[in-house]
Computed example of a mutant assay.
Amino acid sequence: MKKLLSTLILSAGMSLSASATTSLLDTSVVGYSDFTSGTADFGIQKDSVSLTRSEDYLILSGATFNGYGNNSRDIMTVTMVLDLSKINTPETYTTLFNAKNNSVSWGVGLNTERKLQGLWANASYSGPVVATPLGTEGSLTISVVTGDLGTRIYFGDSDTFYSNSDLKFGSQEINQILIDAGLSASIEQLYIHDSLLSQDQIGQLMSEIASIPEPATASLGLLGLAALMMRRRRA
């Protein structure tokens, strides 16, 4: 019986893993289907990355993000699933993520109105902000895309986005992603591409992310399956 249960659990685990393996997730530089675990399970550089914590930031390093488009503009896509219940409204503009090297700093943060706003040079960028404030319940998937035409923030789906044509940079190799320590607990999943994902690709990526079972759900499913097998054996 033990051998049967072990085989069953292994098969179920392989099945879950296979169902989660999809093209856009795999083409990321690095991806976390369970960010709190600290172990990257997607991406072409997933085995190289490390997560360390300073007093102020969670720091992702060990991978390089150096995709370039027209006119050597950097192209990059950062996608996160956020647990809104774990985000407190900040008293000052706070970095959600900051992609940087020694000379450039780009990303997105949360302002005092609980709205997402672009980041440049470690500070809020003076441009359009997301009109809709973050809610306080449930999960929200966002994708922040930079490239030749500036930066887009996709808010929950591929049809809802906010553009800033001036927020862009060029010929820079990003080697660190900084996440504010106070906001890191709100991140459920994280995927980073060094490519300019199109609107259709953002929709596809969000669908792929949504198809990944939550760790707790997967574990409960396996326990239920094992209990059912034990009950049948006793009968």
Results as ranks from 00 to 15, higher is better:
Glu137Gly: 11
Phe161Lys: 10
Ala210Cys: 05
Gln201Pro: 11
Tyr154Met: 00
Thr132Tyr: 05
Ala216Cys: 12
Ser171Lys: 08
Leu116Phe: 13
Gly182Trp: 01
Ile174Asp: 00
Gly170Gln: 10
Pro213Thr: 00
Ser163Ala: 07
Glu214Gln: 12
Tyr154Asn: 01
Asn164Cys: 06
Tyr125Cys: 02
Ser195Phe: 10
Asn175Val: 03
Tyr191Val: 05
Ser126Arg: 04
Asp180Met: 10
Tyr191Cys: 07
Asp159Trp: 08
Ser143Gly: 09
Thr136Val: 13
Phe161Glu: 03
Leu134Trp: 02
Gly127Pro: 03
Ser139Pro: 04
Leu205Asn: 04
Lys168Thr: 10
Gly118Asp: 04
Ala131Leu: 08
Thr136Asn: 15
Phe169Gly: 07
Ile177Ser: 06
Ala131Trp: 01
Leu167Glu: 04
Val144Tyr: 14
Ser186Phe: 02
Met206Glu: 07
Gln172Thr: 14
Ile153Tyr: 04
Thr151Leu: 04
Ile179Phe: 02
Tyr191Phe: 15
Ser126Cys: 06
Ala216Gln: 11
Thr141Ala: 03
Ser124Leu: 12
Arg114Met: 06
His193Glu: 06
Ile209Gln: 08
Tyr125Ser: 03
Ile142Asn: 00
Asp166Pro: 00
Ser171Gln: 12
Ser165Lys: 14
Gln172Phe: 11
Gly138Val: 02
Gly118Thr: 08
Leu183Lys: 06
Leu116Val: 04
Ile177Ala: 03
Ser126Met: 10
Ala185Thr: 15
Ser163Lys: 00
Val145Pro: 02
Leu119Cys: 07
Val144Cys: 12
Lys115Leu: 01
Ile142Cys: 04
Leu140Phe: 10
Thr160Asn: 09
Tyr191Ile: 09
Ser163Ile: 01
Leu140Arg: 07
Leu196Gly: 09
Asp159Pro: 05
Leu149Tyr: 13
Ala218Tyr: 09
Gln189Arg: 15
Pro133Phe: 12
Leu183Gln: 02
Asn164Thr: 15
Ile187Tyr: 02
Glu208Met: 11
Gly170His: 15
Lys168Asn: 14
Met206Leu: 10
Ser207Met: 08
Leu190Asp: 09
Glu137Phe: 05
Tyr162Lys: 03
Glu208Trp: 04
Thr141Asn: 02
Ser207Trp: 05
Ser139Leu: 15
Ala218His: 10
Val129Met: 09
Arg114Cys: 11
Val144Trp: 14
Asp148Met: 11
Leu149Gly: 06
Gly182Ile: 03
Lys168Tyr: 11
Ala123Cys: 04
Arg152Ile: 06
Phe169Val: 08
Gln172Gly: 09
Gln176Val: 07
Ile153Asp: 03
Ser198Phe: 07
Gln204Val: 14
Thr146Arg: 10
Leu119Arg: 07
Tyr154Leu: 01
Lys115His: 07
Phe161Gln: 06
Ser198Glu: 06
Asp180Val: 12
Ser207Asn: 13
Ser186Trp: 04
Leu134His: 02
Glu137Gln: 15
Met206Asn: 10
Ser143Ile: 11
Ser143Tyr: 13
Leu140Gln: 07
Glu214Lys: 14
